[in-house]
Design a protein around this nucleic acid. Structure first.
Lengths: 196, 196, 196, 196
DNA sequence: AATGAATGAGCTTTCATTCAT
DNA sequence: CATGAATGAAAGCTCATTCAT
């Protein structure tokens, strides 16, 4: 996992350019220029535009899986587990805004990305979340008149939709805002937006 | 607004191809072939790939604005208004699956699309929704410890996330399922997923 | 088989450039310039450099097969049949020097061309010749203390080697020289170079 | 002429790769990998791909010239001298199959575009052979109704064509087969394939 | 209105070669 | 001697767009 200087510079440059222009409009020359290296070096290390992009994409997925696996096996109370998943996305946005932006704009919705392997990544992601929702219902914490399937989509949709707005507005996050957002999302999901 | 035969065939072909391949991977030749016309004719009527795409995109936005304006001025009870917005997306998916799919995968998240004009469309969309949420808080229906801003993003994110799953799975909708989905989304948003 | 103007101009240009520079050193831009058409038109008609080359190659093979099949079924005396095969190559050189040159320098010996399909072309060619030699032995015309296999290679090698010299020297052929060459090759093959 | 270990390994690797892929499709990296050295070292010793190839080519030519000079000045009977030339090629194929294959597929015919120096090599080769044929005619051994020029091309063409088949089929040679081939070629060239 | 031949800028990719270590 | 990271010119190919018919 340790990369040499140039390799890392190229990855970071690629993150910036993919984020700014999107995959289709990114030129390998842009990445090379942004990284301050020659044209050929990008190919020397990464072989092709697709490979470079996939490496970036896989970084995202492996981070995400790591967090979800952790929460799946967590003994924490249910609301904390949801909060933790939400926090993952907000932290990702705070720490790796480019990567998060690429996820939002290039991975999560791209019809192009939805090859069989791409779909597989998603399935694994949804399945992990659904398992958590399922457990929430089985332990009597979540209402069971709505399919766990649907609950998952509502929750993940809300989180992802929320993040996408942050990305769109290039908004800055501090810890206070982050906390307020996490609370807002989990509270609305668990207790609703209606006044009691 | 009345189009002649060929013009409409091209629009429909474009919808199908953009939906299947995404904007960047769509060739003008694909659209012409799908429409059964020469590709000179596509240029004759639409001038460029971008114009053709924008026409499609504008169809989406104008449909959406129409519904939202209607609900903004509606005298209906608040939950019904949310349900109606949700229903718009589900109806769009049922009646114009290609267009909805293009919205999900090419418009709503595409960093490329987010030029100043593209952003403007979104702002108008969010602002309309936010006005509804704002009214919900002011009339004491919605809790006011969460910013209307956030409520909007959570609600729209949930709806859009939900639809994107339908698109991804190319799921069929009948009226019963549609109703269950609308109820699920609005109930979770309003009353939460937690057992009382 | 009827080609339009530009298509034929491109084929002829390709023949000239492949002949002059060889496949590997031919640039598609060279062909386009030689044909006096734009870059893209070569691709419009032929799709790729390889396809363009293969079309040319196939012209050669189909001409050759045509002649050999004819001679295989011929009732002519054996020497005439050999002379006819020899004549094919000399006529090819006289009428289509570029094509013949490409055969000599790019097809007949190219390790690159010898893929399974390329090899197949050769096998068919050799097999047809061998059948003629075989018949020559069976009818008592040719000595049978040398395998028909070997006779074929010696004969074809001599013919091909001879042609390759013509190509190398860009020599001009008139009917008189052509006849002398045909006689020389067939006489040496049949009666030997030794004084009796 | 004495080479160190690595130098020789590189030459052998180059022989193998040029033989397998042809000059144009050979990558310096392929040669380095095959030799088990870095590709900087290939440049350290040989300077360029062209130089490396030329060294290999020159090995071939100098071996060949050596044999031909020997036979030119030989006092042996004419048939033995032809047999010896034929044997040179068959021995070369048996002992250095890669080098022979490179001659057949990369040197002997691609010289069409190969510079004046490449053509020069051939001229010298043909001239040497022609001198032998010329002497054969002058001493009354060979018929003189065919130009020595033509006789040379027929003989060399037959030999080279024969070898090229061996290369194509990657055929194994033992001493018995070798002798049968030499006899076949020289006998047909001298006495013809026709039954007397 | 309708066609599709024709264009060429622009892209990804390759690979011989250089050079700092 | 030996390495392999680094370079960039040059090639094949794509495809939106134009335009004569």
């Amino acid at each position: 996992m340790v990369k040499n200087d140039k390799e890392e510079m190229i990855i970071n440059a690629a993150l910036a350019v993919f984020c700014k222009k999107g995959y289709a409009n990114t030129r390998m020359a842009d990445i090379a220029r942004e990284a301050g290296v020659s044209y050929g070096l990008v190919y020397h290390y990464f072989g092709s535009k697709k490979v470079l992009f996939d490496i970036i994409v896989n970084t995202w997925w492996s981070d995400l899986y790591h967090v979800l696996e952790e929460q799946k096996n967590s003994k924490a109370a249910f609301p904390e587990r949801l909060a933790y998943i939400t926090q993952f996305f907000l932290d990702a946005y705070a720490n790796k805004p480019n990567l998060t932006s690429i996820f939002i704009s290039e991975i999560s919705r791209s019809s192009v990305y939805h090859t069989s392997t791409g779909l597989e990544k998603f399935r694994r992601f949804f399945t992990l979340c659904e398992a958590i929702m399922d457990e929430g219902q089985k332990t009597g914490f979540l209402r069971d008149d709505i399919r766990p399937h649907y609950l998952t989509y509502i929750f993940l949709g809300a989180v992802e939709g929320f993040i996408s707005i942050l990305v769109l507005g290039r908004e800055q996050l501090n810890d206070k805002r982050k906390k307020r957002m996490i609370d807002g999302i989990t509270q609305v999901f668990l207790d609703g937006a209606r006044v009691r």
